[in-house]
Every structure is written in C-alpha cells, then in structure tokens.
Design a protein around this nucleic acid. Structure first.
Lengths: 203, 203
DNA sequence: ATATTATACTATACGGTGTAATTTATTTGT
DNA sequence: ACAAATAAATTACACCGTATAGTATAATAT
C-alpha cells in the first residue's frame, strides 16, 4: 500500500467570484460576442490566464453564469394556496415574486443578456429552459383554488398561460426594454392584471 | 448656360435587393456580430465590393434592413371600429393582424434578430421604436367602442396595455422562442385571450 | 461611363496557449 | 511554535492562428 500525500488545495473561490462578477458586468454591457476575455480580465482585476485556470473557454464561463442565475431562480419558494388570504393578495404576491428576476439591475441585465442570446440560439435556450416547468406550481395553485370554489376554469394550463402572458407581456418584457423604468409606476397596472384575471376566472 | 450631360444611371435595384435578401438570411441565422460580410456576399451571390458600393458599412446594411422591416410594418391598415361586427370578431382580426410580423418565417426571423439586438442596445432600440405609437390606433378603437356602449373602462391606455400584454405575452414572444411552433394550435388560446379581455371590459 | 467582379491586401482584434517569474498558503523540520 | 521547504495559484507577457471589416486595383461586363 503506497502512501499518497495529498496536499490541501487552496481556496480559489474568491478569484472565481471576482471573475464571474467581472464577466457579468462585461457580458451584460456588451453581449457575448462583443465581450473580450481581455476586457473581462481587466474588469475582474485578474489576469487572463487565471480566467482560463478556472474556466476552459469563454463559453464555459458564460454557462457558469447561466447556471448561477438559474440556481438563484430556483431558490425562490413556490406559490402555495391558502384559504386564509384573498386571491387578490396571493396573486399579487406571486406576481411580485415572478418579477424578482428583473427587479434588481444585475439580474435584469442578465435576463436581457440571456433573452438576447437565447433568441439567436434557440437550441441552447430550449435546453436551458427545459430544466424546469415554470407553470407547474401555479397550476397546482389554480387547482387548489378551484377545489375551494374560488375559481372556475376549463383548463388550468390555459388559465396559467393567460396569467403568465399578462405578467410577462405587461411587465417583464417592457421592463427589459426600458431598463426597469416601466416598473416605476406599475402598481396600478399590476392591480389591473389581477383584476382582469379574476374577472375571467373568479367565482 | 452650360450644357450638362447627365448620363442615365443604371438600375441597381436588383443587386440591392439581392444583397438585402442575402443579408437577411445570414443575419437572422447568426445574429449581427457572427455574420461576416464575406458570407453575406456569398449568400447574396454578389461580390463583397458590390455590397460596399451600396452600403457604406455593415451597420448601414443592418439599418437598411431595419428600415425595410418598419416600412412593411407601417403598411398594415389600422384597426377601425364598426358596429356592424361583434367585438370578438374585430378583436380577433386585429390580434391576427398584430401577429402578421411573426407569422412568416422571414419576418419572424427578423423579429427575433431585432429583439435580440435591441435588448443589448437599448438606445438603438428606443430610437427605432420611438418612431411610432403602437397603441394609438387601438386606443381610438377602444374609445369608439365605449362610445357605442359596448365597452367600459377607466383608462383606455391601461386597457390597451392589457390587450397588448396578453397578445404579446401569450403569443408573440412564445412564437419567437419556439420558431413559430407555439402558433400551430393557438386558436383556442387566442379565443381565451379575447374572452379574458372582454370579461374585464365588455358591457 | 457605370456597375460589378476577382483578388489581393491592410490593419486589427480576439480566443486561447506557453512560459518563466512571483506570490501565497500549507507542510515539514527543528 | 517558528522558520524553512514546497507546491498550488496567480501574474505578466509574448505569442500563434485565425477571422474580419474595409480598401485598392485592375479587369470585365453592361
């Protein structure tokens, strides 16, 4: 039996974090193609060679950012039906949670970046998105509300599409195009969205 | 008075058209950055020098495509209220007209491309979009319908945002992300959108 | 005479690598 | 417990190959 001396690896998470943060800044400002590794190294305050010590290629670096983003997204707690709160309140809270990804400037920048990249590389986008079923938790909520006789609809999938369509079409995408300015006075719009949804599906 | 012989210029519109069509193909497939002028020349069946005879730079070529696209968009006839038709019919027709830009594969490709580019260059996007007020004609329609006692709402702007949000969030953006596949069986969804809108604003 | 073409060319930018020096944390010897 | 030895991580910098926007030019087609 041979003795193998394994030396403890040093902690490189600080550098890794700096690289990712710098890359996020550069990528969100210029997009993938127009961002050079030299520039990312400069902004991250790190040598270019160190980037390649952590990430084999520019694309791997990008994917790491995507992965981090998705992890953050998945950490949100899902919507859960309760009869103790009005539908309005629950929907409003849920819609605001959905806006989580675009309320913070950094996350909004990433949302813009990914949307932009995914549009021109649909396979990549599909592969990334296919990992989760975004409507799933909301459909369960809808069914619970219907069992509780507060909602009525033919198809929960269709109702979920309407709700997500309203939120994304009225709030999410406009926010991406206006750098969040459209969210400034959007409370009335959010109320109107929920009123519209409930006017169709409420009992 | 000096006689100036102006020689008739030859018609170069054919070449120009070929260039634009080739550029559309390449740009929509690869995006702006990843499209080379050499490749565009090849696909257009034209020498690269000829492209530069028609367009001073890659960006000018791109802008020309944007301009053509917007012209086509503006050629659609606007919605006009009539009491001879049901609201459902008019709204359905209008929504379908709004989907004009994404029903055809080429126009859909351009919509994807522009959305992708505009997201990462918001100033450019804003400048391009600011040329028209997309909701204007629809707001007029809404007001006419209200005067005719078929609709009732507090704010026509808000109602218009809800309608556009529904159409774009449920139909337009999904179509861009799925290369139009989501439009295949979208008739039921479109009916649901209109039912939702009318359940909120119909009399 | 105008438009187009083929071809070669310039200048530059960028992804990624090689390398030798240097920093830094861990291990080991005392 | 402390300093010397050691190996991992980082850095600076030069470098390679390639791609690309745009130009120059001379020949050819219309």
């Amino acid at each position: 039996m041979t003795e193998i001396k394994t030396r403890k690896k040093r902690d490189t998470s600080q550098k890794r974090k700096a690289i990712l943060e710098g890359a996020v800044k550069v990528f969100t400002q210029n997009g993938f193609d127009a961002s050079s590794m030299d520039r990312i190294a400069e902004v991250a305050g790190v040598s270019k060679r160190t980037i390649y010590n952590h990430f084999p290629s520019k694309e791997d670096l990008f994917q790491a950012i995507v992965a981090d983003f998705l992890k953050q997204r998945d950490e949100r707690k899902p919507i859960q039906y309760t009869s103790a709160q009005s539908l309005e309140e629950q929907l409003k809270e849920f819609a605001k949670a959905e806006l989580f990804l675009i309320n913070d400037p950094v996350r909004r920048g990433l949302s813009k970046l990914f949307t932009s990249v995914f549009l021109m590389d649909l396979d990549f986008g599909r592969k990334t998105r296919s990992q989760f079923e975004p409507h799933k938790a909301f459909i369960a909520w809808l069914n619970a509300a219907q069992e509780n006789q507060k909602l009525r609809f033919q198809s929960p999938e269709l109702a979920a599409r309407i709700f997500y369509g309203l939120v994304e079409g009225c709030l999410t995408y406009p926010a991406l195009f206006t750098d969040g300015a459209s969210l400034r006075n959007a409370d009335g719009l959010l109320d109107e969205i929920i009123a519209t949804f409930l006017s169709r599906y409420g009992c």
